Computed example of a mutant assay.
Amino acid sequence: MDEPVHLQRIDPERNMRRFYAAEILPTLFGGVSVVRRWGRIGGPGRVMLETFDHAEEARAALTKLVSVKQRRGYRIEAG
């Protein structure tokens, strides 16, 4: 799972239009980071960065994040 992941949760009845994006990027010091962006579709959203020493740890964290978001109703964005 090295490609960026884009998820959406849209529920017109609840006026909910949210996005969640995550990707793995290298750091300047040899580690890797999972960069997460989330918020309302069309808005600036928020950003969180979590750094790991090994790419395997970052991949496991990204996989877990996507799994949790999918259980909460987010769907992978087609495109």
Rank of each mutant, 00 (worst) to 15 (best):
26 P>V: 13
7 L>A: 07
24 I>H: 09
66 V>A: 12
27 T>N: 06
63 T>Y: 12
12 P>Y: 11
38 W>K: 03
40 R>A: 08
33 S>N: 04
49 L>F: 05
36 R>K: 08
68 V>F: 12
16 M>N: 09
69 K>C: 15
59 R>I: 10
2 D>V: 05
22 A>D: 02
27 T>E: 12
38 W>N: 02
25 L>H: 06
30 G>L: 01
12 P>S: 10
17 R>L: 08
74 Y>H: 07
27 T>K: 02
29 F>P: 12
1 M>S: 10
25 L>R: 08
11 D>W: 05
77 E>L: 11
38 W>G: 03
33 S>C: 13
75 R>K: 13
30 G>A: 00
44 P>C: 03
53 D>V: 13
31 G>R: 06
35 V>L: 13
67 S>V: 05
47 V>G: 03
14 R>K: 14
39 G>A: 08
73 G>F: 14
71 R>N: 11
65 L>Q: 10
66 V>P: 07
72 R>K: 13
50 E>H: 06
18 R>C: 12
45 G>M: 00
66 V>G: 11
19 F>N: 04
25 L>K: 07
51 T>S: 01
35 V>N: 12
23 E>Y: 04
12 P>K: 14
18 R>I: 01
68 V>M: 11
10 I>W: 15
70 Q>V: 11
74 Y>E: 05
35 V>W: 08
62 L>G: 00
72 R>F: 01
27 T>G: 01
47 V>W: 08
31 G>M: 03
5 V>A: 09
50 E>C: 11
41 I>M: 12
20 Y>E: 06
39 G>R: 15
6 H>L: 11
60 A>H: 02
9 R>I: 09
3 E>Q: 15
11 D>L: 05
77 E>Q: 14
23 E>A: 02
79 G>D: 04
16 M>K: 14
62 L>D: 02
26 P>M: 01
78 A>R: 15
32 V>G: 10
34 V>D: 01
37 R>G: 07
20 Y>H: 10
10 I>G: 03
